[in-house]
Design a protein around this nucleic acid. Structure first.
Lengths: 160, 160
DNA sequence: GGTCGTTATGTTATGATATAACCCTTTAAA
DNA sequence: TTTAAAGGGTTATATCATAACATAACGACC
């Protein structure tokens, strides 16, 4: 498993997505998750691109495919995926993205390209050292953390 | 200037806030910022506590003090402060907090206590090493980044 | 195989957050 | 002192998210 899933370079995306799905299947088995049809499709929709999707975008897709038409349908599926570590919330974009390292139990970090809107995930091995140090010193217990970095990817830099 | 502003321990907050304001005054002078009444008050309101405030909470306060009553009043003041580096947006909380290190040009990192809702800012010296490395390797140019860590502060851990 | 508590999925309605567009006033610079 | 730019107020609306409730599906158990 690579340490960095480069969403920005062109790649065999079908393989890329299938690879994630294959790992998801293992986790589903192992943890006895109930990856129901809505949830499965929601994850697949997220995996179609490396962009973060808003809940309402996902909802549109789900509705078109015969699932419910109301916001909670999408939010529930998305929240479930996030809880199970199969997706992440990208707060800066009010959106969601499939986790590229399902099962790896990591603190996610994201590179977000302001030009093409794509999102790449890195699997940070641990909490940021400086932050971790500060937390330790003052007795703060970190449960979860995430990093969102805005910038521009190589492809877009070349274009502009 | 300390490397970590501990919002969670009891402290002389009036001094703490005044200290920040004093540094802000220097920056305002140096950069010829227009810290108008709404903006100044908005910053002061943020500085009253170590909690992140929603735009509508700020708005209520401003309205009560004779400023405008509509959302853009608060959002404009808050956005200005963020642009000038005098405040930060805490996305996880849909809120804003005064910057504790104005003028220090840093990538902020936050410890957010889930129990008392207070927010402490650390002045990360640079981008997260792992993320920075990934970005470099793939030619991604990071412009801004921030870290938001959820957890529980020492005071709240003691209580629970 | 029924039954029963739990989980899932759908609904309607509403809450919370954020911005667009417009108009007048203030500011600072020519 | 005119004038362009920035500020601050408004109304209206867009966008994002959840509360509360009803029915259906699941799965553990006797």
């Amino acid at each position: 498993m690579p340490a960095f899933q480069n969403a920005f370079e062109s790649h065999d995306h079908a393989h890329c997505a299938d690879d994630v799905l294959a790992r998801v299947r293992v986790i589903v088995q192992k943890n006895k998750l109930r990856l129901t049809p809505v949830r499965q499709r929601t994850l697949e929709i997220l995996l179609e691109s490396h962009k973060a999707l808003g809940a309402y975008e996902v909802l549109e897709r789900l509705a078109a495919e015969g699932f419910g038409h109301q916001p909670p349908v999408a939010y529930r599926a998305l929240d479930y995926l996030v809880e199970q570590g199969l997706a992440h919330r990208i707060r800066r974009l009010n959106g969601f993205a499939a986790c590229m390292y399902p099962g790896a139990d990591h603190e996610p970090a994201f590179l977000i390209c302001k030009s093409c809107d794509k999102v790449a995930e890195t699997k940070g091995s641990a909490f940021d050292p400086a932050l971790n140090q500060a937390a330790k010193t003052h007795g703060f217990h970190i449960e979860r953390s995430n990093i969102e970095a805005m910038g521009e990817c190589a492809s877009c830099k070349g274009v502009l």
